[in-house]
Amino acid sequence: MSDIKVKTAPVQGVDGRSGGHLLEVENLHVEFRTRDGVAKVINGVSYHVDAGETLAVLGESGSGKSVTAQTIMGILDTPPGFVTGGSIRFRGKDLLTMGKDERRLVRGEGIAMVFQDALSALNPVFTVGFQIAELFRKRRGMSRADGYKRATELLDLVKIPAAKTRLKDFPHQFSGGMRQRVMIAMALALDPEVLIADEPTTALDVTVQAQIMDLLAEIRRDRNMGMILITHDLGVVADVADRIAVMYAGRIVEQADVHALYGKPCHPYTLALLDSLPRLDLKGQELNTIKGLPPNLLRIPSGCAFHPRCRMAKDICSAERPALVELGGVRASACHFAEELYGRE
């Protein structure tokens, strides 16, 4: 069947040139046309992930991390959401111009996603076992009984106790953390090449989080899977990421290797973000925050979108939009003073 073709196609550029990344988002633009006006939610996002690699996407809540992921998955809420520019290439083929059927095949076994909101991503009227078994029946042509068998294995894999009996439960009967694990199990079901995990462990306690992150790391290694990890947890990112992309107001403002980013953030937003972490020596004191409100995407500030809240802002910042410039050939930052920040001790 044609899904086999999708899996075994060599990584090739659109023009037949090989090389390129497994998944590559380039200059993506997405807007939401709402009653109040046009919200420019994604304003030129570019990032990529290769097989076996973990890219962490950090950023302010509302900065467009999930919308980017939804656009990659082809599940953008349209209308009101519209892609207005850019490309998303998977194995060299642009998902945005691909036919519906071909794209459907990519979903699940090419690229799978663990959603941020586990409860609304699961169907409340069917048991968890039925939902997983259906996946195998529809996509793999398995019998219902075999589907249930695989479902049990998957729930075991994500460490849900008494997996076999819990298959008969409905999503609302699981705790928040267990629903999240069910979601992870479903995403891994069809053996995807790229897994997008949107806040996969937010609902989990740290011991289960450690287990799940270990599990994801193991699967990533064994299957040479690429992973895009969207999270607010700077601890998890420090633990598992290879590279990091930081988003603000629908743009990537900084991109670097994990050690470089934590060691020496080169964008004022990243600096402020790392500065807001609760620290032992700040117990009982006010935590550092970023002053002001997140940007109104209906009226994104001129120049650098961060300028109304930036401690380093100068006149040029409201006048000119800083490009994402390379620093030392290994990292990039979109700030007029990126070089200075990079050069500091």
């Binding site: 607010h232 609760p278 006010e286 935590l287 925050t289």
Partner: peptide, 20 residues
Amino acid sequence: DEPVSALDVSIQAQVMNLLD
């Protein structure tokens, strides 16, 4: 119940300061 686990650390810090 998990009031800040969905928030980025800077907004999390704001909410915690606010609760305080």
